[in-house]
Every structure is written in C-alpha cells, then in structure tokens.
Amino acid sequence: MNAVPRDCLPARAGLGLKPEHYSHVLEARPDIGFFEVHAENYMGAGGPPHLYLEAVAGLYPLSLHGVGLSIGAAGPLDATHLRRLRDLIDRYRPQSFSEHLAWSTHDTGFLNDLLPLPYTPETLARVSEHVDEAQQAIGRQLLLENPSTYLLFAESTIDEIDFLEAVAERTGCGLLLDVNNVMVSCVNHRLDPTAYIDRFPVERVGEIHLAGYDETVDGAGDRLLIDAHGSPVKTDVMALYELTLARTGPLPTLIEWDNDVPAFPTLHAEAVRVDALIAGQAVRRNVLKRAG
C-alpha cells in the first residue's frame, strides 16, 4: 500500500491562478489555501508568466496540473514534453503534481482534449508503464485524475475505480478525485455517483477537484452532463463533495474555473464556501474522536 504523503498541499480550498488575477493576488494576498496552474501554460522560455508564478509560489503552496502528457495514449510518451515537465518541477518544486487518465496526443498532432480510453488488461499495462515512466522522469509521485466521459467502450472489462486503483498499486502513484467528473460520468452512464464515491480508494487520494458542469440532452433525450469549468460548482456536486469529505477527511480541494473566468471575489467566495465544509468535517471528526 502506498499511502499518499499528506504533508504536501494544505487541507484547504485552492484556486486556479489566472493571468487576469496575478496583480490582485500579489497586492491583496487573499487568504487562499493554495494555487494551481496548468503546467503547459508555463512552458514558455520567459516573460510575465514566470515572473508572476515565482512571486505567487513564494507566498502560497503550489499545485502543478498537467493537461498534455497523454498518459492514456497507446503510443509512447513525448520525451520532450517529459523533459519540459521535469524542468518546470525542478524550477518551482510544487507541493503536488497531477495528470489525467486520458489521452490527447496522436500521430496527427495534439488533439487538445482529454479523450477516453477502454479499460482492459492491455490498456492497464500501458497506462501503468506511462505513469511509471513519468514518475521516474520527474523524480516524484504524481496524482492521477479520474476522467469525465461521455461514452463507454464495449471492450472494457475493468471497472474505472478498479483500473485507477490497479495503476496506483502498480506504480505507487496517488489519485486525484475530481468530484465533478464523478457526477458527470455517473449521470452520463446512469450510474450512482454516491456508490462511486463509496467505493473509491480514499486512502490514495491526495487532492480533490470541484468544478461546474453544463447540462444538455443527447439525441435520445437522455441527460448529458459536460465538464465545462465555466460556472460555480452545482448543488448536487457540492452535496457529493460533502459525502466525499466524510469518507476522506479534510483534503486539499481545488475549485476549477477555466472558462469565462469571473472577477476574483467570485472565486474567493467559492473558496470560502469550500473551506467551511473542510473545517466542518475536521470538527466533526474531533467530536467523534472525543465521543469515542
């Protein structure tokens, strides 16, 4: 068993760091548990992104979140991209590094989306090799995130949670539990999100993600949720998050809002709401301990 070290990011709400908020964050220094950035946005040679990230990383714990490694690709990992990641991690020494159980690179180029893969013994072996290779290259543990998906593969023989747990077991990686992705995938595939959370191997979880989804219907008129990151966390996801916290205990929790980014106070209010839930969970545990 490879328990995730818990001395990394603080068990608080964190926010994505957006260029439009750089100055405000450095001047006002809002009370936020940590900031997260997409690694690929900081792979330029120089300029304002690095200047601001260095300043912010000097004031707040930092989570680095990759969106382009394509761990779920059938083909090999991009060695150049792994080197870029290693350089970025060496430079900023983030408290956490995470990536996705998805693929995005193909021989036609970078497809700029997190695409789904079947869960079979063959894909499990490939993903485990890739996670292993990535961890060797960057010299640290990564957290692997559960995906949001819109369709399934007939050839899948392994349940998603079992797949994630097996990758973690084989490679020693941790898991990133995206509660919005759980809601999106479960609604899309008519599964029970509560049952998903109940079965998830929480002892391996190093970070939680929350976000807002969009809702539409498919051609058959069935509910179709889309992982959109452009609105507040929906009520049902927040309720599922509370259930999650009751199982995991307090954990670092990122609020993702990447499109139609609002003014900072709106993001800050979301963080305050999540911080209160985390603190409430900690207190409940204390009371239970005393009672026990």
Partner: peptide
C-alpha cells in the same frame, strides 16, 4: 466501432461532445 452507452448503442451527440471540445478549444 466499439463505442457504447448506458442505454446500449452510443448516441452520436455524445461523440460530438469530443469533436466540439477539440474544435472549440482550438
């Protein structure tokens, strides 16, 4: 081939989400 959904055959609108994500993102 080989895609499916909870209700059986996959709905084209679901695959279209991925096509749309690639297009809108770029």
């Amino acid at each position: 081939l080989g895609l499916t959904g909870a209700g059986g055959a996959v709905d084209a609108a679901r695959f279209a989400v991925y096509r749309n994500n690639v297009h809108v993102g770029l």
